[in-house]
Structures are given as C-alpha cells and as structure tokens.
Computed example of a mutant assay.
Amino acid sequence: MAQQVKEVMTAPPHTVSPDTSIREAAVEMRDGDIGGVVVTDGDRLVGVLTDRDIVVRCVADGADVDSTPVREAVSGDLTTVGPTDSLDRALECMRDQAVRRLPVVDGDRVVGIVSLGDLAVERDPSSVLSQISGSTSNT
C-alpha cells in the first residue's frame, strides 16, 4: 500500500497560465478528463482552477468564457503537500481546508497534483468514491 503522496499523485499536472481563457482551461480539463488544472506563472504556483470554480465564479455570473482569464476565477488560497508527505497528511489537509485537490510541490516547483479520488482509490478500492474515481467519465 502506498504511503507517500508521490506514489499516488498525477505527475506532471495539467497546467495553465493565469492569462489562459476560461474556455481554454475548460477544454484542457475536458480533454484530460480531469476536474481541475494547476495555474502557474512561469515556475510560480498561482492556484488551482476547478470545474466548479468555472461554474460558480464565471458561468453563474455571466462572464464571457472566451475573454475572461483564469486569474479571475482561480482558487488562490492554497494548501500544498510535498511528494514525500504521507497520505494521512494529504487527507488531513484536504479535510482541514475542505478541498478535493492539492498541488504537490518540491521546493518551489510544482511536481504533481493529488485528488481525493486518488487517495480513495489507494486507501479503499472497494469504496463508491474509489469506483467512481477509477471509472471512465460519462461526459
């Protein structure tokens, strides 16, 4: 059984810049069959943009997804974990911050992303969340 974040994280993560349009970020998520992208400015971690962020902060407010940059919708209050952090630490961070995805950083460099689904698949493969996370998307 995996013990460290690096054993279950997605690496490298899908990334976009803060100037990327919301539509382009959404296409990246669709094409990657993922629920969020890591936003970076060069090597600097800016935040995580999720499909929910797009709906709540853009679509619901009537934003033009072609002209609105990711920086206007990104979740910037970040909690991160390191690749050698324990899975328990990642779960604790997710619970404490009420987030489903954590950027994985090694020093100043983003090396991956770990999701609640990744941890569910590892910890309890027979759970409903694990089965959903491991299945092919229906979209």
Rank of each mutant, 00 (worst) to 15 (best):
P125A: 02
D88K: 00
V59C: 10
Q3G: 14
V128C: 05
D41G: 03
S130H: 04
V38Q: 02
M9E: 09
G134D: 04
S115G: 14
A120I: 06
S67I: 03
V104M: 05
E7L: 12
A2V: 14
M94L: 12
R71M: 07
D77P: 01
S127R: 10
R44G: 01
L91A: 13
G36I: 05
R44W: 02
R57C: 05
R109N: 12
R89E: 13
P69H: 08
R71P: 03
V111K: 02
K6T: 11
D19K: 14
A60D: 11
A2C: 13
A60N: 09
T80P: 00
T20E: 11
S115V: 06
D77A: 12
A60H: 09
A120F: 04
A120G: 03
D33P: 03
V8K: 05
S115W: 02
V114R: 04
D108T: 14
D64L: 10
M9F: 10
V104N: 02
R100G: 14
I34V: 15
L119C: 03
L87R: 00
D118N: 14
R30T: 05
V110M: 01
T20G: 08
R109G: 04
E72P: 05
E72K: 15
T136K: 09
G76S: 14
D124I: 02
V81E: 01
D64I: 06
R23W: 14
A63V: 10
R100E: 06
S126E: 15
S133R: 00
Q131M: 07
V111I: 08
D41N: 12
M1A: 12
G42F: 01
L49W: 07
D43P: 03
E24P: 05
R101C: 09
C58Y: 00
V114S: 02
L129R: 07
V39E: 06
L78I: 09
D88A: 11
A25Y: 03
T80G: 01
V114E: 05
A90T: 02
V105M: 04
R123F: 07
G76C: 07
D64W: 07
A120W: 04
V16N: 01
V110D: 00
R71I: 04
T79N: 06
G82C: 03
Q131G: 03
V46R: 14
V65S: 07
R23H: 15
M1S: 13
Q131E: 13
G47R: 09
T20M: 11
A120R: 00
R52E: 05
V56W: 06
V37Q: 04
L116E: 12
S127V: 11
A63G: 11
Q97S: 15
N138T: 11
T68E: 10
Q3I: 12
C93A: 15
P83W: 01
D108S: 15
M29W: 02
V38W: 00
T20H: 10
M1F: 11
Q4M: 14
D41M: 01
T68G: 06
E92Y: 12
D31N: 13
S67N: 12
N138W: 09
G35F: 03
L116G: 08
